[in-house]
Amino acid sequence: MHIELGGKTALVTGSTGGIGKAIATGLAAAGARVAINGRGAERVAAAIEAIGARCPGAELIAAPGDIGTADGVAAVVAALPAVDILVNNAGIFAPQGFFDIPDSEWTRFFEVNVLSGVRLARAYMPGMLAANWGRIVFISSESALHIPAEMIHYGVSKTAQLAVSRGLAELTAGTGVTVNSVLPGPTRSDGVEDFLTAMAGGGGGGIDDIAAGFVKQLRPTSLLQRFATVEEVANMVVYACSKQASATNGAALRVEGGIVRTIA
């Protein structure tokens, strides 16, 4: 199967590193014009340079802005009024005991992980429906199904993304627009080393050993038995954004290595 997205414009939020950068690279390789988003212009420029080196001739545009705020979303939409593909990838996570999570952190996680995608879909989806073609993908997590005790607020925000995604998909009936969510499992993305070190409590050992211990102790049902790569996750997202994925709508697509023990 050859995925070709020439003539399509995509916005990938939080695409200066990690899973987002891998998704942006995959979409660019498929011929899409890709807008790179991050909070700082310098990181956006660096990501564009790196992706351009991997995808010579790709059309990449800068779309800086803090999409965790209403003003930041408004700035991105003003600079990029219409897109064919929206990948709501930007998100935050942090291990924190439930009894130590203040209201301000619950609000911050909801603003970044949930409302950013709500606001962007509200801005871009009407144009997709009018054009009778579009793709919206929410990057959720297996934590949406298995709420992690070490970061309940994160899990709740990821469950909320599934609800928003499915609800928006219901609005696309009979059109060429699809809305899906993708659920990665543990992935070796930017920032994960700090997360793993924090989870290990500074107990020492190499990052590979800590990662293996994390999967064994906290995700023991994993069939993959390792962290996924960002490219493995991006492959699923690029497919969900493709023309070939026209019959995939309202779905929660799992790339979590078999952690979730279910046949459905």
Rank of each mutant, 00 (worst) to 15 (best):
H146S: 13
R219A: 13
T159Q: 07
F214H: 13
I210R: 14
Y154L: 00
I136Y: 11
S140D: 02
S189V: 00
I207E: 05
I147L: 14
K216V: 00
F195D: 00
Q217R: 09
L145A: 14
D194T: 07
R219E: 12
S189E: 02
A149E: 10
F138I: 07
Y154I: 09
A163K: 13
L171E: 12
P184I: 04
H153T: 07
R219L: 14
G155Y: 02
R188I: 01
L223N: 08
V182N: 07
S189I: 00
G204R: 06
D209P: 11
A163I: 01
E170W: 13
G203M: 11
G191C: 09
L183W: 03
E193H: 11
L218V: 01
K216H: 09
L171M: 06
T178C: 10
L171F: 09
M199D: 00
L145K: 09
G176N: 10
V182M: 11
P186A: 11
A173L: 08
S140Y: 02
G134W: 06
S143Y: 05
A144H: 13
A200H: 15
T187A: 12
L218C: 01
S140H: 08
L171N: 09
R135M: 01
I152C: 06
T197V: 10
S143E: 14
I152F: 03
D209C: 10
A212G: 15
R219F: 08
S140C: 02
V177Q: 12
L145S: 15
F138W: 13
R188W: 01
Q161T: 06
F138K: 02
I139Y: 08
V177M: 03
E150D: 14
G204I: 02
S141A: 14
S165V: 04
H153I: 09
T159C: 11
N180R: 10
A144W: 01
R188S: 15
H146M: 14
V137R: 05
G206S: 12
R135A: 12
H146L: 11
L223G: 08
I147Q: 08
I210Y: 14
R219M: 04
G174E: 00
N180D: 12
G191T: 00
V137Q: 08
Q161C: 08
I136C: 12
V192P: 15
E170A: 15
I147F: 07
A200E: 05
L168Y: 15
V156G: 01
G174S: 03
G213F: 04
T197F: 12
V179A: 11
I136M: 11
G167H: 06
L162G: 10
Q225P: 03
I139M: 13
G176W: 13
T175G: 13
D208M: 02
D208T: 05
K216R: 15
Q217V: 03
D190V: 05
G155T: 08
G204C: 11
I152Y: 06
L224G: 04
Q161V: 00
G167D: 02
L145H: 15
G206I: 02
K216D: 03
D190C: 03
